[in-house]
Structures are given as C-alpha cells and as structure tokens.
Amino acid sequence: MAVVNLLKNLGKWQGNGLPVTMIVTGLLLIFETLFVDHGQAHTAPEKIPGFWSLFGFLSGIFIVFFSKWLGHLGLLKHEDYYDH
C-alpha cells in the first residue's frame, strides 16, 4: 500500500517536522497578504495579516503552559493515588 509506505518514510523524517511547518506557515502568510480579502473579518485586529497565525501560536503555548501550571499546583498525582 503506497500510502502506508509513504507514512513509514515520513516517520523516518519526523525530526524535520519543525522546519517543514515553518516553510508552510511562511507560504500561508504570503498567500494571505497577497490574495485574501479581509471583508469577512469581524474585528479590526483580524484584518492585520498574520493575526490568526499569532493567535494560534500564542493560544497553543498558553494552553500548554497553563495546564502544566495547574499540574504543578497539585492536580497531577501518581497513578495509584486512589488506591491509597
């Protein structure tokens, strides 16, 4: 199965995930700046090119750090917590 073989090869190249994603996001920003009409934007900040990129990036980082912070506050316990 060609797709499966492709996937296996992709798996071997998984270390290159970040550079590939950076290139794709760069292309998306160029596409938005040149071709996208912001008439559908609901708020002024949405009309700034790259607004949703920054929003997605910061949201992801915030959620990870916030959940880790909650875990450090005492929410995370050992697996057999309820057995004791």
Binding site: L18, T21, T25, L29, W52, F57, G74
Partner: peptide, 26 residues
C-alpha cells in the same frame, strides 16, 4: 490554515514539556 499550522510550530517548541509520565489528574 494559518491558525493550525502555527499551532504546529508551537507544538514542536513545547514538545519536550509533553513527554508522558505515569500520572493522574485530580
């Protein structure tokens, strides 16, 4: 697309923080 791909960038940056540990969230 921008939103999701930049989330992927964020994911790769915080990946070391996501290493799994045997734990339970109260």
């Amino acid at each position: 697309c921008q939103f999701l791909f930049f989330t992927v960038v964020g994911f790769f940056l915080v990946l070391p923080m996501l290493s799994p540990k045997p734990s339970l969230a109260l």
